[in-house]
Nucleic acid binder design. Structure first.
Lengths: 99, 99
DNA sequence: CCATTAATTAGATAGTTGTCTAAATGATTA
DNA sequence: TAATCATTTAGACAACTATCTAATTAATGG
């Protein structure tokens, strides 16, 4: 969970995730879309991989990166638990149909 | 969105959020539950407030903190959009339908 | 087998972050 | 008004992060 939040806490990495929604890409193709050197992008990809958000497969000379959204399920569950656990004081508010 | 990810990228701050699910607390009560000085907790509370995750209301000598989960909706939407946008290639797997 | 290409690793550096202690602010009460 | 209590602000510092350039590894094609 820690690695996940860490990975998501950077705009470049989130952009990479968004990019990969359009389909798999190799490292060079990803780097091309950013105003940043390849080693920097390589580093970001590494952090995304550590968090399990992307997977990499070597294909000849290239390394192909793909999205893995299953890790996000954990985060999704955590988030949704907040929606459910509405603070008790919220009950009175206006006139919510309690259920 | 940036501030939100930043705020969530720390275990202490996430614990504070979890704490506040049980009900509002003042700064001192929050600090008491952590093995950390009050100024440090104050700093964390500030970041949470900047992200809109908590709200603070001064009540006499005390400052009361409460959870505000509405900010998480944005994050929730972002996350769910990943679930929907399953990578197109996942459909057939074996023989790519070139188009 | 050499040159080229793709990508990573290594090492350096500036900027950010989490934590602390000390000081300041603001409210309460004797 | 002076002392106390709750909290924040200020300033310092070590650890971490994002980025760069240079060097390395590994695959491909002449």
């Amino acid at each position: 969970m820690n690695n996940l939040f860490k990975a998501l806490n950077d705009p470049t990495r989130r952009q990479i995730l968004d990019l990969l929604r359009g389909g798999d890409l190799n490292a060079g193709d990803i780097a091309e879309r950013f105003d940043m050197t390849k080693p920097s992008i390589s580093h970001h990809l590494d952090l995304l991989r550590q968090a399990g958000l992307v997977e990499s497969v070597k294909q000849g000379q290239f390394i192909n990166y793909s999205l893995n959204t299953t890790v996000l399920d954990e985060l999704l569950a955590w988030l949704m638990s907040f929606q459910k656990t509405e603070s008790p004081s919220a009950e009175i508010k206006t006139s919510e149909p309690t259920r």
